[in-house]
Design a protein around this nucleic acid. Sequence first.
DNA 1: ACCGAAACTTGAAACCTTTCAATCCAATGT
DNA 2: ACATTGGATTGAAAGGTTTCAAGTTTCGGT
Lengths: 338, 338
Amino acid sequence: MAIGVKDIATAAGVSLGTVSNVLNHPDRVSPRTRARVEKVMGELGFVPNESARQLRAGRSRTLAYVVLDATNPFFTDVARGVEETLAARDLSLYMCNSDNRADREANYLNRLEEQRVAGILLTPVDPEAPALDKISGRGTPIVIVDRTRIGDTHCSVAVDDVLGGRLALEHLLDRGHERIAFIGGPPSIGQVRDRHAGALAALSDAGLDESNLVRIDTSALSVGEGRQAAQRLAGIPGARRPTAAFCANDLLALGLLQHCVSTGVSVPDDLAIVGFDDIEYAGAAAVPLTSVRQPRLRLGRTAAELLLDEVENPDHKHQQITFTPELVARASTETRAN
Amino acid sequence: MAIGVKDIATAAGVSLGTVSNVLNHPDRVSPRTRARVEKVMGELGFVPNESARQLRAGRSRTLAYVVLDATNPFFTDVARGVEETLAARDLSLYMCNSDNRADREANYLNRLEEQRVAGILLTPVDPEAPALDKISGRGTPIVIVDRTRIGDTHCSVAVDDVLGGRLALEHLLDRGHERIAFIGGPPSIGQVRDRHAGALAALSDAGLDESNLVRIDTSALSVGEGRQAAQRLAGIPGARRPTAAFCANDLLALGLLQHCVSTGVSVPDDLAIVGFDDIEYAGAAAVPLTSVRQPRLRLGRTAAELLLDEVENPDHKHQQITFTPELVARASTETRAN
DNA sequence: ACCGAAACTTGAAACCTTTCAATCCAATGT
DNA sequence: ACATTGGATTGAAAGGTTTCAAGTTTCGGT
């Protein structure tokens, strides 16, 4: 059924090798034969079998980005940065969504390794997972995106999350808040820990006790979890209730905000909110959201460049690149009228 | 360097065929040898070469979803539905982002066909593109998602966009609006045409002239374009300026809304807004957005099921499935106090 | 102990390309 | 005319796996 090089060769009256040359080394073939072969290919609807190609030639022109949550605009923006860089070199990118589940991530990594993709960009569920070493040890380079990993066994690009957390908290402290909720989780996520740590650091720098940061744990960084956190926050007795919330990402912040708006809690008067990531929807929210911005596209572009270097450059050196986040102040933390 | 079945066979003291059987037909192998072979595989870090596998066996365990705009939450929600269905059968999904560009789409389709993926889910830039017929004619099934195509050469799942447009307009007419903007484009997108047609139909059913639907063309369905459309809308002299806007999707509506809020145009009092898709951020917007809801997850699940049927079932029949949209009323169209 | 059947294992062929050393041929220089 | 050159073409081998017909072992029954 399927047309192969052999059929083309027969139909065009040339040898197998010549057909292959037309495909891979057009310069080695005389213009006349090349034209003939290409014509036949068109007529017969020849589609090269990439499996056979790759098996023989060993190379691969596809990379993959295994993303933690494809529905989070932050990651799709990073992906856009990656694609920009890859498209310029005629490489394809497959996106895989681990949905924050280690088993799904492992599954995808496995499949990708079996497929012998040229390289993998990964925002891992657990950056310390030993599987990552195994995979890159066997020859599939992995670049870690938006996370960091202890040691220098991999390239990585990330944002200084501790600093980000600090920025967020300093902003709130500046605005007079002293009792602040930290909403985020699960704590297994290194970023959540880092952002929390940064917040704590800012607090103690300001001479305040750590107990002023009320931790509200969530089981994921999603809008739905944000809404639930809002309920728990509302359940805290008035006197002890925080006047501001720092959310570990914008989805949580949006959920929190949504709940506040619908239950009549005024933002920022009753509760100031700071998010993290500054996704496009943050600025368009019910109350435009103050957020800690990460350079999403640059993150993606840089990650792609590191990966390409690792793929192509024999004396590649691993690099851990850290970008600096930036606080974008909006209405959700405007100083209260008093 | 890389470990192959041959190495495993040697190390475990069995034949090639047996190793293969351990991999593909564990029941044909005695537990004892199986254990031994598996142990060796683990020790040597054997990773099957999927290219070779696929070349020989002909099958493939991956499907792909070529999406129009990975940053639009609508599509990532559809993708989630797809993944749900596929994960249950241990199939992997690769997502590719055509970014609304025909060349990129063609590129991806090409790569996927060369890769011999089992099947493709596609939200095409142009549903009538002849390339689609060619590809499925050569044996890679394609299911069209969120679009329809003339004829029954492919399976498709979509929402009745004409009805959706009608619902949106009826809602606005009910609320007393008579001069309404239709914001969307480019008109090459069939959905935009359909939603517009539905809007027109509702208008004439209500006995109003078509000139009451002011068309504002955009070059894409994005937040940024929504903001630009807002400016054009604002430029229309007061008397002729519409009192309501129906946006071809929620991203446009969010952009429009954002611009209104920041320039002091009151929504819904000065301008009522209806979006389309009802993405998660619609309800969380500055003014919660009235929108026409599409059953995103079901769309994805159903598309995946159709594709699987086409892949697995020899006497598969193409089906064009249409879902019914539903209007979700929120604050952005609340009746004006009068 | 021996038979036959059932359970397991084997080895070679096939999948479709790319690669590369060898061959061919036309054109050039003498 | 003839040797030389160098570009164009060829054909067989190789790449890692699955398949399947054929071969070998094991075991219950007698």
